[in-house]
Design a protein around this nucleic acid. Sequence first.
DNA 1: CTTGCCTTGTCGAGCGTTTTACCGGATGAA
DNA 2: TTCATCCGGTAAAACGCTCGACAAGGCAAG
Lengths: 342, 342
Amino acid sequence: MKRRTIKDIAKESGFSLSTVSLVLNNHPRISQSTRDRVMEVVRKYDFHPNSAARGLASKSSRTLSVVIPNLSRVFSDIYLGEIISGIYERATSQGYKILLDIATAQFIESQEYSKLLASRRADGMLFIASDIHADYLHVFEDSPYPFLLVNHLFPGKRLNYVAVDYASSARLAAEHLLGLGHRRIGLIAGTNTHTGLIFRDEFLRACKSWPAGAADVTWVDGGEEWSQRGGYAATAKLMDLKPGLTAIMAANDRMALGAMRWMVDHHLEVPEDVSVMGVDDIQIAAYVNPGLSTIRHDLYQVGIEACNRLLQLMNGQIKECSDLLPTSLVVRGSTGRVPSGK
Amino acid sequence: MKRRTIKDIAKESGFSLSTVSLVLNNHPRISQSTRDRVMEVVRKYDFHPNSAARGLASKSSRTLSVVIPNLSRVFSDIYLGEIISGIYERATSQGYKILLDIATAQFIESQEYSKLLASRRADGMLFIASDIHADYLHVFEDSPYPFLLVNHLFPGKRLNYVAVDYASSARLAAEHLLGLGHRRIGLIAGTNTHTGLIFRDEFLRACKSWPAGAADVTWVDGGEEWSQRGGYAATAKLMDLKPGLTAIMAANDRMALGAMRWMVDHHLEVPEDVSVMGVDDIQIAAYVNPGLSTIRHDLYQVGIEACNRLLQLMNGQIKECSDLLPTSLVVRGSTGRVPSGK
DNA sequence: CTTGCCTTGTCGAGCGTTTTACCGGATGAA
DNA sequence: TTCATCCGGTAAAACGCTCGACAAGGCAAG
């Protein structure tokens, strides 16, 4: 099968190579009548210009690299899906395609993140996979390549980011639980990301400085994957350390679901015996029993905004970016007033 | 910033353009000593060959297109994540990258699926997004482009596919419930995919021809998105139509979770009053209360296998593909013997 | 000393676009 | 009439790599 090229279109339509190219790129230089005659031939052959040739000549791949974390079953976390949907929406509307990568050990060791941009396979990179050990990202400080962290940040590194305001989420959550009278609180923290650490520290701070009396907060780590399983194990640990806890705060909804499951398995009622609260407001949070109180993070919006900012970095409209997006409290059935007599 | 090319490497290392190219492609023609001297320079400059130029000259983009369904919050379904992880694993190991697309209305109307392959932006396509209305896919019958449906199929169209054996799943599920004595069963079906229809029809058939006595199965549609919400609504409808149901069979776990939620909201015990069963064995199925009985679909394996087959189609090792992968029963707490006296 | 073959490296013609000059003709003002 | 300007289109030089054809040199066999 002979592959058609712009040359065939030129020959058949009677115009030059350049003219066809200009038509295909909607260049204003070309008159409507010429445009029509060329497009007729283009449609007749269902012609689509070769993207490699385009990329070579134009020095742009019209492609964005998106790197996601290497958690087992990573997609099951709505967390990611929302962000990616947002990115896709924005990227597509600007004529960009998405090249997906997973931050596996192999991906990092072979420095794919550099290779992708250096080889011009992608014009810019959105990185959703940063944990506190991602020191290799320092290559993107002052790098000529457009790079942006999505819902992560790296204190001490000059890296662009768009993220939800985790400190504000921590305050909202703390105020909700404290306002319900809780003073003995267990915190299941995520400590493998900087945003997780920010959440933990701000939550502790808010509980310590509560006007109506400081709360006693015990925290444990919820595990690398922020999963139900991790939340379950962390809850077991907390309840062992401090049997009198009246509330469990988890750094995301999945761990909170693990906590609720532990309560059921140990014949404790939520929220009568213990209140449980999460963060993110994933879809299933409204479908468990009781519904999970949580902090809403609009991750779709994070995706949109992150992609927007990356595009601005790419065309030079901005030089750097450090956006924090707002969050809000969602109250459902899993939190209630502290049990009387406790 | 001057971008380095293969030419600079050639000059600096004292070899020809072609030699550098051959080294970079690990061609056996080149001796070890030459290879070493070239690679030294390559590393010195952290050089990465331009992928557009490579693609243009080699007529291959080393990229696979993956198209996923346009469900709102689509990623929240572990269903997809598992498949994509499998695809990624396989594709990466063969040096291919993944170009992600979502089957939005825009994607379909603008015939992006053709454009991607015709413009050589991707060398082959894995389509996870097929519903019964995807008639436009007929363009891939006898198309020169490698194309494969993932966990879907299209009776009546000559399209390659790799899918789980839904008919076998239906039999396993039916046998489990019938074996527990259930004879009045509600089925929440997914009717917008051919695999969903196959499941429904085979489930009905199996229930009708059960040796120990046919069951009375009532089925309703669970909605386009196979979601908790849809499962919840479908359960309401079923329980209204047939108040005496002793078991609910849902075509996926998410709808089953919706069904369980409905039971809780209406003070019915699972499985004491009604058994509930799903399909897929998503991660959370083990974490709800009671644990969800289901049919395990190894979707990671589907991804691996699908990618394998596509690569074989691409290099001509096979001409067509219609694989069905096995499934298995997983019994947890949500199904039990039919209540006595019912 | 030929001849032929093998090994290793080089030449150079593409690959299919974009984009910068440039050009001819029409238009309009002086 | 002349000259500058504009308009619509074209020629051709990149863009950076791959790969088939070819060449040089070494070596073994006759």
